[in-house]
Amino acid sequence: MSSSSPPIARLGAGQPAMRRPRGLRLRQGSTPYLFLAPFVILFLLFFIGPILYAFKLSLFTLHRHPSLNGATNTTTFGGLNNYQRAFGDADFLSGLKNMIAFGIVQVPVMLFLALTFALVLDSPFVRLKAFFRLSYFIPFAIPGVVATLLWGYFYTPSLSPVTGLFTKLSFGNSPNFFQPVSHLLASVGNIVTWEWAGYNMVILIAALQSVSAEIYEAAGLDGCGPIRTALFIKIPLLQPALVLTAVFSIIGTLQLFNEFSVFNQGGLAAVEPSVTPNYYAYTQAFTYGDFNYAATISFALALVTFVFSFAFLKLTSRGGE
């Protein structure tokens, strides 16, 4: 049915045996289904099922009926009412706006750093490459919660080993890292950059190493120095890897939750639910008990993620041709 579809042809490149031998096809019977079964069953139960369930929940509206014996809740079918409410809800929109602003600043800064590290470490100028590569990458091995706690303590003047420097260097008082929201977003942006810049660097270095050495030799023969090689040969070659890291970063940005939750839970900062869409959904569910609206927010967020990822892929693929 689909053996000739293009994705497979591409995936099988370099491996011409990707054809359909007759005998194999007759023999295979239920074999592929048995191999697929464990993954597919778990995938349906713990991935597709919950998503469909969330969608169903999002179509129902919660009604509270307060009474003397405590509140009773009922739900009625409301169609897309919840979605209408969400896209008119200032708190949800403020979370989205924060994440878009965050994505516009943090993702390019992080990827610019990752690209610079990769190019400098791939250049002939520097020594101690293994040490630097490892020291940039190691934060990726640190659990997000631990990274958030460490930086959270750095941001708290009574605990911090560094905020005292602001006074010592006569920059005046240390800034407040948690208030207002723009400062909080910048502080979390620093944590995310700290954790993920090295990871993205390693992806880019790996992509550089898969480039054939002949290309660089040819560039060298043409009188192309290391810096020109980096700018005019390596960066264009890295474009697919950069697009991939950007898409994953966009997805990650829209999902932000942990850092804000840990700050709030630990009393380091008072975080408003409207700070990120995920945090808002979490609060709707577990503070206000409105799982229908929480599911709507989660689902709307997934839709927004799809839209942004595809729009970014479209934009970059058009620019590349």
Binding site: F47, I51, F257, N278, A302
Partner: peptide
């Protein structure tokens, strides 16, 4: 799909 969107359902 945001993994966090899965956690609530």
């Amino acid at each position: 799909v945001p993994i966090t969107a899965l956690a609530l359902p």
